[in-house]
């Protein structure tokens, strides 16, 4: 009962309420949505403990078993340790000041760290995480080229149409096309605004109906796979 009936009942009551809530503009109705969103954030905070355990445990196993690439797992530990240490020390200092009757107040904990310690976390963010993310993102340009090559070399009618449309749109986006003929960028815009938009909206309509149907299945307890089983 606790594993099936209660969660399904909660999903029914809460799901139905938030469908109704969408149509109720009163302040208490809006507040219930804000409260639910806040609860979700609190849950997420606790869930991060689970996530951290999962991450640490999986990488620990890799290191212990000396799996290929276990050196990267050591880097995970190093990065995690250094970032957490730099992030926490400032907060511990503030907590100590608070407990010792110092000048720190509760509001201080809402600000992001202190002047000395946050600089370390900021440095990691600015000079390690950010460039590493940018590097991964920049690979996308090469991957787009290779994916496009694989698609366009296909010998089907659909692939040929895709190739022609893509060539027109890409060429219509560069200034040279307008220099040759104003009609080229206009035609590229037309492709994006009409055939492309029509397909996009068709997909969106299908997605929306799918979302509503899935929500109904969950609210009425027909779909229960998300509870872990059928």
């Amino acid at each position: 009962m606790l594993k099936r009936t209660v969660p399904v009942a909660i999903a029914f009551v809460v799901g139905l309420w938030f469908v109704i809530q969408y149509f109720v503009p009163a302040g208490w109705s809006q507040q219930s949505l804000t409260d639910a969103t806040n609860w979700a954030k609190i849950l997420l905070g606790f869930a991060y403990i689970l996530g951290l355990y999962s991450l640490v445990h999986v990488h620990w196993l890799r290191i212990r078993r000396r799996q290929p690439g276990y050196g990267y797992s050591l880097l995970v530990y190093l990065g995690l340790g250094v970032t957490v240490a730099l992030g926490m020390v400032g907060e511990v200092e503030k907590a100590w000041n608070l407990l010792a009757g110092g000048s720190a107040s509760f509001a201080d904990f809402q600000t992001y760290g202190g002047p000395n310690w946050t600089s370390g976390v900021d440095w990691i963010y600015t000079y390690v995480l950010y460039p590493a993310s940018a590097t991964m993102f920049s690979i996308l340009a090469f991957f787009i080229a290779s994916a496009a090559y694989r698609t366009f070399r296909a010998r089907t009618l659909e692939a040929a149409l895709l190739l022609v449309a893509a060539a027109i749109v890409m060429f219509g986006r560069v200034p040279l096309s307008a220099a040759i003929d104003q009609a080229i960028p206009q035609f590229a815009d037309w492709i994006m605004a009409y055939p492309n938009m029509a397909v996009k909206r068709a997909i969106l309509i299908g997605v929306t109906l799918g979302m509503v149907a899935t929500s109904l299945r969950i609210i009425f307890g027909i779909e229960r796979a998300y509870l872990g089983g059928d």
Binding site: L43, L44, A47, L50, G51, A225, Y226, G228, G229
Partner: peptide, 12 residues
Amino acid sequence: YDPIVLAVSQET
């Protein structure tokens, strides 16, 4: 990617 999705996925 998300810890809550992780917990639900493990159970599923």
